[in-house]
């Protein structure tokens, strides 16, 4: 307990130092100039930072596209086979619970070190949120709407593409958003098995004891995650049927 209290104290001291360093100058004892060092490092290595950021985004976006295609298809299929659905969702739930480090570790013997391993692990992770949301989005539609469409003589195929998917889209988008934010974090860990991206900064920073590098990596990943979260949140709003009618 004492240790934790000590740690907390250090934390607050450091946080205060980080915030006021530039204002107070050099006469602070603790970690002098960490904030300035970081800014320095970022401005010196901005091209490398940008490159890693793009690599990170590429990994996330590529896997997101693969995951959406697979998961939405699976979600639609299981929405027609109720008995099948619980099993599939259960398996996806278990996949998501597995620690990301363990999941990446399972992939290494299969796919070796590198980009593919990262992509595979990320796709498996993002199954649950998208599959589940696609499934519930379709299942929880007002049955009267589907019945009305049937009554007007639409084929099941047309009902799926013209009624079910458009109406379930906001829910599906919410699942995509959850998956995307999660993927950005796991992609950082995937750098450890050679998938590249901002995680590289964190890992090589830790192994070299280079703090500005770690901070740049960690903050960079966080910013991407928060930005994605916001962008997709507004995307979600725009895509929803209600949102569109309101805007005219």
């Amino acid at each position: 307990m004492e240790q934790i209290i000590g740690v907390t104290g250090d934390l607050f001291r450091t946080a205060a130092n980080l915030l006021f360093l530039t204002a107070q100058g050099e006469d602070v004892e603790y970690e002098p100039g960490l904030f300035r060092d970081t800014v320095d490092w970022i401005s010196r290595r901005s091209d490398m930072l940008l490159e890693l950021m793009l690599e990170h985004l590429w990994l996330v976006i590529l896997t997101l596209i693969i995951a959406v295609v697979i998961s939405v298809t699976v979600g639609i299929i299981i929405s027609y086979y109720e008995s099948f659905a619980q099993t599939v969702l259960g398996v996806c739930q278990v996949l998501m619970v597995i620690p990301s480090m363990a999941m990446l570790a399972f992939m290494v013997p299969l796919f070796g070190i590198g980009f593919t391993t990262g992509v595979m692990a990320l796709v498996l992770y993002s199954l649950l949120p998208i599959v589940r949301n696609t499934y519930t989005g379709i299942r929880e539609l007002d049955p009267a709407i589907v019945e009305a469409a049937k009554g007007m003589g639409m084929t099941e195929r047309r009902i799926l593409f013209k009624i079910k998917i458009p109406l379930a889209r906001p829910v599906i988008m919410a699942g995509v958003r959850t998956a995307a934010v999660m993927m950005i974090g796991i992609a950082a860990i995937a750098a450890y098995v050679g998938a590249g991206g901002l995680g590289e900064l964190i890992f090589s920073g830790i192994s070299r004891g280079h703090q500005p590098m770690i901070i740049a990596g960690a903050i960079g990943v966080s910013i991407i995650a928060i930005a994605f979260d916001y962008l997709l949140y507004y995307g979600e709003k725009r895509f929803s049927v209600e949102g569109r009618t309101k805007e005219g």
Binding site: I184, A188, G199, I202, Q211
Partner: peptide, 20 residues
């Protein structure tokens, strides 16, 4: 939204290594 690796990494830069 902040990834767990980022959280751990930031705490490392502030507090150093170790179980605690």
């Amino acid at each position: 939204t902040v990834p767990s690796l980022a959280v751990l990494a930031l705490f490392y830069t502030i507090l150093g290594l170790g179980f605690n």
